Amino acid sequence: MSSAATPNRPLRARRRATRGPLTPSGLPRWLLLPAGLGALLVLLPVAAMFLQVSWSDLPSLLTSESAVDALLLSLRTAASATALCLLLGVPLAAVLAQARFRGVGLLRGLVLLPLVLPPVVGGIALLTVFGRQGLLGGALEVLGMQIAYSTVAVVLAQTFVSLPFLVVTVETALRDLDRQMIEAAVMDGAGRTMVLRAVALPLILPSLVSGVILAFARSLGEFGATIAFAGSLQGVTRTLPLEIYLQRETDPQAAVALSLLLVLAALLVIGLAGSRRGRP
């Protein structure tokens, strides 16, 4: 081995180290195979739908009465569920971010439970509370209110599965706030409500918007909890995912067309959420 080659080894090692462990040139090449398979697993089914759909029949498939009813109902209920998530989720996230009492970890776990529960289990749980024979069903019926198998049930089902997305996003943002800015506002005489409204919320606005977008997207795609708690009545509880499920048996082309509509909506939502996260 030549003496001139020896000093080059540390230099090459330093060059490899400066590339960084997360840059493409610094990754082991064998990762490309499982990464490519993972990408294909997600992209190939979506691409297959684009190839299978009958583009000439697409306008008639998307403008049928049942499809339009389902789409409009989904948009209305998803917007209502998102508003409810915002109304309840921001205070809940603020409490979880600041709470130091014993058992806060358990409370956080219970709040995030819908993230891991099968949605149909959430629908059955809601039914045991608001159904006619449920925990509150009798009292609600006395007041002339029937929630189960109504449009309100759709909104509650969507809120149940969507709320954790907003809570996680907002709580994480609140935990990452600059403590010095909060302390400076307190020293200037700002009360707790003023600190939250005038300091904390403006600082976490990008994360808050991302959480709202994610909650809306999850509400728009909700299926399991809705069908278990609200049923499937056209114009009342049959949202777009339920319409797709029914069309799958009777008109597969219509099911594919409506599925593409949800895919495009999801891509739009992902783009909006990604653009918000990319902003300073």
Rank of each mutant, 00 (worst) to 15 (best):
P114Y: 09
F160V: 01
F165M: 13
L107H: 05
V129G: 03
A81Q: 04
R132A: 11
S150N: 11
V121P: 07
E171Y: 00
I124W: 14
V167D: 01
T128C: 08
A99V: 06
G131T: 07
A93R: 07
E141V: 03
A99W: 13
V152L: 15
V95D: 00
E141W: 10
A173V: 08
G122Q: 12
L135Y: 07
V168K: 12
F160A: 02
T169P: 04
T169K: 07
A153D: 11
L127W: 07
L136D: 09
S66G: 05
G123E: 09
A79Y: 01
A94W: 15
L72G: 03
L106Y: 02
P114T: 03
L71A: 15
T169L: 10
V167C: 02
T169E: 15
T172Y: 04
Y149M: 08
G109Q: 11
V170N: 06
M145R: 11
L72Q: 11
Q98E: 01
G131Q: 13
V167T: 03
L112D: 08
T77R: 09
A157Q: 09
G123N: 04
G105S: 07
T128P: 00
A125I: 07
G134W: 14
G137C: 08
T128R: 12
G109D: 09
V116Q: 03
V154E: 10
S150H: 10
L174N: 01
L174K: 00
E65F: 14
A173H: 01
S66V: 15
L117Q: 10
L84K: 11
L92V: 06
R108G: 02
V90R: 02
S74H: 03
A94Y: 14
V142Q: 15
G123T: 04
I124Q: 13
Y149I: 01
F101H: 00
V95M: 07
Y149K: 03
G123V: 02
F160P: 05
A97Q: 08
V154N: 13
